[in-house]
Amino acid sequence: MSTDTAATTIAVPSQALGAVEIATDSVITVCEPLAGFPDCAGYALVEHVKRDGRPSASVFWLQAVERPFHAFVVTDPWGVFPEYSPEIADADATDLGLENFEDARVFAILTVPGNPSEITVNLRAPIVVNMALRRAKQVVLLNDEYHTRHRMNGPVA
């Protein structure tokens, strides 16, 4: 007896990325809508491809599934600020269903203006994803040393 294990995919006509095929089992659902985007519940994490055709190790697109014109450029905050030490509220961890830190992945939203030397990163309100449950939430950190527009110390890879 043969079973088909191929994942079902959906096509998302991303304004930023063009047509993107998303595996339905990889869609991340937000616990609460991201600030300013009340109509988006599902997102896909898409690798950023550099100009030379290679995928970036630390930059991704968080592409809305329902609203193709909503896409955020996100990064691993430790790639740009190795000393980053986010503290999230217990209530946020509960909302995400996080029982251990190994299931969590943290992404910081980048603001990319026309001049690449002016890129900033939001370390104050990262997006925390429970990768096991595919559940995400943008959280405001308990520690107040981080801001929404930290200047980048160097290029994002």
Rank of each mutant, 00 (worst) to 15 (best):
N115V: 12
A91S: 14
P86N: 07
V121Q: 10
F107W: 01
A35H: 11
D92E: 05
P55Q: 09
A64R: 00
F69H: 15
A71E: 08
D103K: 11
A23P: 05
P126Y: 09
L123Y: 09
Y84Q: 01
R51A: 15
E66V: 07
L34K: 07
G18Y: 02
R105Y: 05
I127R: 06
V49I: 08
N115M: 13
A11H: 13
V73L: 10
R105F: 06
V121C: 10
G114D: 15
V59F: 08
D76F: 03
F60H: 01
A89K: 07
Y43I: 02
N100P: 09
V106P: 05
E32H: 11
E47I: 12
T9I: 10
T9L: 10
I10P: 12
L17P: 06
S26D: 15
V46L: 05
Q15C: 13
T5W: 09
P77R: 00
L98I: 02
I88F: 03
D25R: 12
A19F: 08
Y43P: 06
N100H: 14
P113R: 14
Q63H: 02
A132F: 01
V74H: 06
W78M: 05
S56N: 12
A132Q: 03
A35M: 12
P116R: 11
S58V: 15
A19P: 00
R134H: 15
N130C: 07
A64H: 06
V59I: 12
V46K: 07
V80K: 04
D95N: 00
F107V: 04
K50W: 09
A132L: 08
T120D: 12
P116G: 10
